[in-house]
Simulated scan of single mutants.
Amino acid sequence: MARTPSMADVAKEAGVSGQTVSRVANGKTNVDEATRERVLAAMRRVGYRPNSAARALRNGRFSSIGVIISALSTFGNSRTLEAVTAAAAAEGFSIVLMPVDRPSQGEVAGAFSRLDEQAVDGVIILIEQHQLNESEIELPQGLPVVVIDAGGRRDLPVVDFDQAAGAAAATQHLLDLGHRTVWHIAGPPQSYAAERRRDSWQATLSRAGREVPPVVTGDWSAASGYAHGLRLDASATAVFAANDQMALGLLRALHELGRTVPGDVSVVGFDDMDEAAHFWPPLTTVRQSFGEVGRQAVGALLAEITGGRGEPVSIMVPTELVVRSSTGPG
């Protein structure tokens, strides 16, 4: 069996001391760049890999963050995960991903158990479903945890978009254009984000003294927006869809029905996905800064890792209404 290359092998190959190799392997900054590059090149040539577990025993850190996530296929979750990964990498941390199909007590507890075996310094939870707030969901003590988009939980640090302000801005924009009321295609009922957007839409109409139309519920997909678009009430002149994908399906349905956008019906989405500016017509929508949520979540978790758990914080990241050509006068 071949012997695993050691630091001594790297030191001999690079022509430096073992202490210098140790500094490079542990990410210390007191090594000049030319020497660092020579040591790294020697590591590659001899096949040496720093032992992260040994480093963790020495400095008390694994430089690894666990992420428990549900519904990885949804646009919001995938973009948020991408942002968390980028923010963690910028801080020198790697990500261990633990998807859960159904965020029940057993699934979440199992994910924490597997992450504990992977030796992570803390965990970010990205589960938007209502189950996370149920009393039977018990999170382990002692492990730093930050939650993204978790609705009702207030016993943990929470980072979220200002969903209510974004939905209010979308609804008010349509009212300001002269539409008598605004219809709504909501997201799935188990989603906190969908719930907050729906409640804010309804509250905005009520404050303005406008009729609140019946809510129709989609599943975040373009297909569900299309299906509801085909059945849209003939009197509707403005629709706020809870995400851009459902708005895309709605646009197709309206085109097929011969209802022009925005001439007959104005449409607003939510997310500002990259493709929204290239829909026909370009979609008015609510922009969410996924990068900022990722940075804030990782920053809050690192603060817990290094400083211990204090009072739970709630960080709200602003949203922004982006007006394009899919909305017009009512």
Rank of each mutant, 00 (worst) to 15 (best):
L72E: 08
G106N: 12
G47P: 06
G47F: 03
E107K: 11
A90R: 09
T29I: 00
G92I: 05
N133R: 14
A41T: 10
R49N: 13
E136Q: 15
G92F: 01
E91D: 13
G47D: 01
A56N: 05
A109L: 03
L40R: 08
V100C: 03
R102T: 14
M43R: 02
I65S: 10
E91P: 04
N26D: 05
E136W: 13
R36E: 00
V120L: 01
E117I: 03
A53L: 13
A71W: 08
I69Y: 07
F93K: 00
N133Q: 13
I127F: 04
E138F: 09
V120N: 02
D121K: 01
I65C: 09
N77G: 13
L139Q: 02
V67E: 10
T29N: 14
N30L: 01
R79V: 12
R79D: 14
A54D: 03
F112A: 07
G106E: 12
G110E: 01
Q141V: 15
E37G: 11
A53T: 13
V67T: 10
T29V: 00
S78L: 04
R44F: 05
Q105P: 14
Q118V: 09
T74F: 12
G142Q: 07
H130K: 15
V31C: 05
I69Q: 10
V31Y: 02
L132R: 10
H130M: 09
A54E: 03
V39E: 05
V120W: 04
A53D: 11
G60A: 06
G122S: 01
A88P: 06
G142E: 02
G60Y: 00
P103G: 12
E117R: 12
A54S: 07
A71I: 12
D101L: 14
N30H: 10
F93Q: 10
M43I: 02
S94D: 13
L57M: 07
R38A: 06
H130C: 03
S64W: 02
E138Q: 14
S73A: 13
R55L: 09
L97R: 04
L72Y: 06
V123P: 10
A83T: 09
V67G: 07
L115S: 00
N133C: 15
F112C: 06
G47N: 02
I69W: 07
A56L: 04
A83P: 07
Q131T: 14
F75R: 08
Q129S: 14
I127A: 03
L72G: 08
M43N: 03
L57W: 04
Q129T: 15
V39N: 01
Y48N: 02
V123N: 07
V120T: 03
V39W: 03
M43W: 03
G92R: 03
R55S: 14
F112L: 10
V84N: 08
N77T: 14
S94P: 02
G122V: 06
D32N: 15
